[in-house]
């Protein structure tokens, strides 16, 4: 473990070394290693069942790796330091919101769980940021998929995390909601957050990324800079990688 992480001015936000995860005989993640600097945006592509969600669950501390290490913002994920969880915001397949509560009540609850100093003020602020202030006191179960996703973003950033993990955030969104989400993600990126996003959408995935990776059958078969990446050649590379690892 890196000592006294809060004092460190390290450039490396995420340092993953040889992470593996097995479920019985199934090896979901097979020795993945990479580094991300602060403020970098990594888009992770891969077919279904490639282990992308498992990798994000490991990095967010929800699942322990079978072997390997990962240091995030100076904290070793294996040690499960609660301070690490304050550094991370996660948008997963689930909204993690209580449907019978209002957005304000949901945010208030999470603000209290993150021990924020002014929970009410921060809750209102973050709801405003995602454009749901007018629906702040309606129950969440009345929300559309797009509104729910925006509220999920609010939940993920309420504690102002420096690192965001987004697991297929565009799934199930209509065009309008997807554009709104894209704008919000761009905003989060420009605020200097380190982001890892998994997606199947090549266009949206390549738009914002600084780094791009392809994960197939539990391992990275490609990890390169996303700058000046040509879409057609990347698409070919993606299909080649998937085909060769069948």
């Amino acid at each position: 473990m890196v000592s006294n992480p809060s004092d460190q001015e390290t450039e490396i936000a995420i340092d993953v070394q040889g992470i593996r995860k097995t479920f019985g005989l199934l090896e979901a993640v097979r020795g993945i290693s990479f580094q991300l600097k602060r403020g970098e945006f990594l888009t992770l592509f891969g077919p279904n069942g490639a282990g992308k969600t498992t990798l994000l669950k490991i990095l967010s501390g929800l699942t322990k790796p079978s072997s390997g290490t990962a240091v995030i913002s100076g904290y070793d994920i294996v040690e499960g330091n609660p301070a690490l969880r304050s550094e991370i915001g996660v948008i997963s397949h689930s909204a993690c919101l209580y449907e019978d509560l209002t957005p304000l009540e949901n945010m208030l609850f999470y603000a209290k769980m993150y021990s924020l100093e002014s929970p009410r003020e921060r809750s209102v602020q973050v709801i405003e940021e995602v454009g749901l202030k007018s629906r702040m006191n309606d129950r969440v179960h009345t929300f559309s998929r797009g509104m729910l996703q925006r509220l999920t973003i609010a939940r993920a950033i309420i504690h102002n995390p420096s690192i965001l993990f987004l697991d297929e955030p565009y799934t199930g969104l209509d065009q309008h909601a997807a554009i709104l989400l894209k704008e919000q993600l761009a905003q989060l990126h420009t605020e200097g957050r380190t982001v890892i996003m998994t997606t199947h959408d090549l266009d949206r995935g390549l738009e914002m990324c600084d780094k791009v990776a392809i994960q197939v059958r539990g391992k990275f078969v490609c990890f390169e800079s996303g700058q000046d990446l040509e879409r057609t050649s990347f698409l070919q590379k993606y299909f080649d990688a998937v085909e060769s690892n069948k």
């Binding site: 967010s60 501390g61 929800l62 997963s92 397949h93 689930s94 909204a95 993690c96 919101l97 209580y98």
Partner: peptide, 9 residues
């Protein structure tokens, strides 16, 4: 809605 996951985070 995966609220338990939200709590665990």
């Amino acid at each position: 809605n995966g609220c338990l996951q939200g709590l665990m985070l």
